[in-house]
């Protein structure tokens, strides 16, 4: 069985079990390793990718569900919000072990793409599904505000 969709702007056909979670299709079939596995149950956000511009947990989304859709992973981030997020992440030295950070960057980018100037409550709402066991949360919050400001400037 094969599923066709757009992966990071490139039309892609993956030959895999349509029930396979998108996470594993991206990692093991398409060979893109930036998206991580943390829980497999939509509880941690490590596997966050964008499907049609919206953040989704790829560990619980079957490959078949993205047929004909646009999927963006950390490797394919292009938007000015994404660049601002990644620059702020470096400036504020957010990552520690780094394992959750692809997911954090994906969630933060999606937030800024839909909300140019998120409040702390907006950040809580958009980011509380992304666990960071190193607890880099204060820097994630500061970096999201910094990214929003840098886009505005």
């Amino acid at each position: 069985m094969s599923t066709s969709f757009e992966l990071n702007g490139v039309s892609t056909t993956l030959d895999a079990d349509p029930a396979m979670p998108l996470l594993w299709a991206i990692r093991e079939v398409a060979g893109l390793h930036g998206t991580k596995f943390g829980c497999g149950m939509a509880l941690c956000g490590a596997c966050t990718v964008h499907v049609s511009g919206k953040p989704v947990r790829s560990c619980v989304m079957p490959l078949s569900a993205v047929a004909g859709k646009q999927v963006t992973t950390i490797e394919g981030l292009q938007s000015k919000q994404a660049k601002a997020v990644q620059e702020a992440w470096i400036l504020l030295q957010v990552p520690q072990c780094g394992y959750c950070q692809s997911g954090q960057v994906m969630s933060a980018t999606a937030l800024l793409e839909s909300n140019a100037e998120p409040t702390d409550a907006d950040i809580d709402g958009a980011m509380s599904g992304n666990i960071c066991r190193c607890a880099t949360y204060t820097r994630i919050r500061a970096a999201i505000h910094a990214a929003a400001q840098s886009i505005k400037a």
Binding site: E28, G31, H33, G34, T35, K36, F37, T73, I74, E75, Q86, W89, I90, Q93, V94, P95, G98, Y99, Q101, S102, V105
Partner: peptide, 27 residues
């Protein structure tokens, strides 16, 4: 001194064990 591992942990390129892919590897 900026952390040396940060850039690769922001663009998804940092290599963890999860990311090891060797020819013929099984899981």
């Amino acid at each position: 001194c900026p952390r040396l591992d940060v850039p690769s942990k922001v663009d998804g390129s940092a290599q963890f064990t999860l990311d090891v892919a060797l020819p013929g590897m099984l899981v």
